[in-house]
């Protein structure tokens, strides 16, 4: 089954890239990504730019409305994701718990929808 692990964390809790903690975090992500690939469970995975880079678009009354900012203003933001292909939820949760952000943020694990 395929699962998406959505990585949420607040800005304050996330180590800045140019600090020793941020560098460590980057190393940890490199290591865990390598592990996922070695185990043959990773379909894809990416980090997202921050919400200040977000633009929303929607169509209302036939008109396209484009706006600056994220869909919802929340403290914990979606910062990245992995897609795993594993046997069951238990494996998906086990791999999700290895994601470095799980130590201070939250990982939401959801199955990809299968249309049948």
């Amino acid at each position: 089954m395929k699962y998406m692990a959505l990585i949420y964390a607040s800005d304050e809790a996330t180590p800045k890239y140019d600090t020793p903690e941020g560098q460590q975090m980057f190393q940890d992500y490199m290591a865990v990504t390598a592990r996922f690939q070695e185990d043959g469970v990773m379909v894809s995975g990416d980090a997202l730019e921050g919400v200040e880079m977000a633009t929303t678009v929607r169509i209302r009354n036939g008109k396209t409305e484009t706006m600056d900012g994220p869909f919802t203003e929340t403290k914990e933001q979606l910062g990245g994701y992995y897609i795993f292909d594993v046997e069951s939820l238990d494996e998906a949760l086990r791999y999700a718990a290895m994601i470095p952000t799980s130590k201070y943020g939250t990982i939401e694990v959801r199955p990809l929808k299968v249309f049948d």
């Binding site: 089954m1 699962y3 046997e87 069951s88 939820l89 238990d90 998906a92 086990r94 959801r110 199955p111």
Partner: peptide, 14 residues
């Protein structure tokens, strides 16, 4: 069914 909660006895770690 949809989230794939497995029908099995957990492993030693779990």
């Amino acid at each position: 069914r949809k989230a794939g909660i497995p029908y099995r006895i957990p492993n030693e770690q779990e």
